[in-house]
């Protein structure tokens, strides 16, 4: 897509000012970051529209349709706008916001784990999956799969989502989590094996997997 550079106005206002100004759909990432750093409200809007879908998709895939999704999404953007001045290379802004999202996912998972121990009623139940999945076998499979994911640690689960669901490169996952490549590879391998075992041993997944041609081991 063709993008043009747009310099921020000299008398840039606060980034939190809500003004009905036009967005900058054609600005490249570099110009967008410059605008954000200069306090251009149009850049705030453009960042929201440009990165919002990516952030929400990553949150959904990592956590499922949880009630706190919008809150988490907004927290990602608040952190992003606060820290965008620290970004050294504006061309890596997408990776930057992905790493912030990964951090929020880890934070949310840890907070949920702590809450499960403190509040006897357990975590907030997920939203009704009927709004996102019409097939009942698939809905049940999703519930079982997210339950299996819950048994991973916050870091391993985040790494698994980034690498296998979001399909980021190994190096991108390592950068987002602040790990070395070797550590990332080792932990991903461990997570994969553990989840494989959990899926294999979960009889409740059979109806869904049989439909997809993945019956019980040795029958496919």
């Amino acid at each position: 897509m063709k993008r043009t550079k747009v310099a921020p106005p000299e008398n840039a206002l606060s980034p939190i000012a809500y003004l009905p100004t036009a967005a900058l759909p054609d600005a490249d990432d570099e110009a967008l970051v410059r605008g954000l750093r200069g306090g251009d409200p149009r850049s705030t809007r453009e960042a929201w529209y440009r990165f919002g879908p990516t952030v929400r998709r990553l949150l959904l895939r990592a956590l499922g349709p949880v009630a706190e999704l919008e809150d988490l999404s907004q927290e990602v953007f608040i952190t992003f706008f606060d820290r965008v001045r620290t970004l050294r290379d504006p061309r890596t802004v997408t990776a930057f916001i992905m790493s912030i999202t990964a951090f929020k996912i880890r934070h949310h998972l840890r907070w949920r784990w702590v809450r499960r121990w403190i509040v006897p009623s357990g975590p907030t139940p997920p939203r009704d999956l009927r709004t996102v999945q019409s097939d009942s076998d698939s809905r049940e499979a999703l519930k079982r799969f997210f339950a299996a994911l819950d048994r991973l640690g916050a870091l391993d689960r985040t790494a698994f989502t980034l690498r296998f669901v979001e399909e980021l490169e190994l190096q991108q996952v390592a950068d987002a989590l602040g790990w070395s490549t070797a550590t990332t590879k080792r932990r991903l391998n461990r997570s994969w094996k553990r989840l494989s075992a959990l899926v294999r041993d979960d009889a409740a997944l059979e109806p869904f997997l049989s439909d997809r041609g993945h019956g019980p081991e040795g029958t496919a």
């Binding site: 998709r57 799969f145 994969w192 075992a197 993945h214």
Partner: peptide, 29 residues
């Protein structure tokens, strides 16, 4: 997925695919 595939890889891959299909995008801002 990993360096050493283990039995049940296809089943897990199917689950991952289900997640990807269920949440193809994050919706419009």
């Amino acid at each position: 997925q990993a360096e050493e595939p283990v039995p049940g890889d296809e089943r897990l891959a199917a689950m991952v695919q289900l997640v990807q299909q269920t949440f193809p995008d994050g919706g419009r801002s």
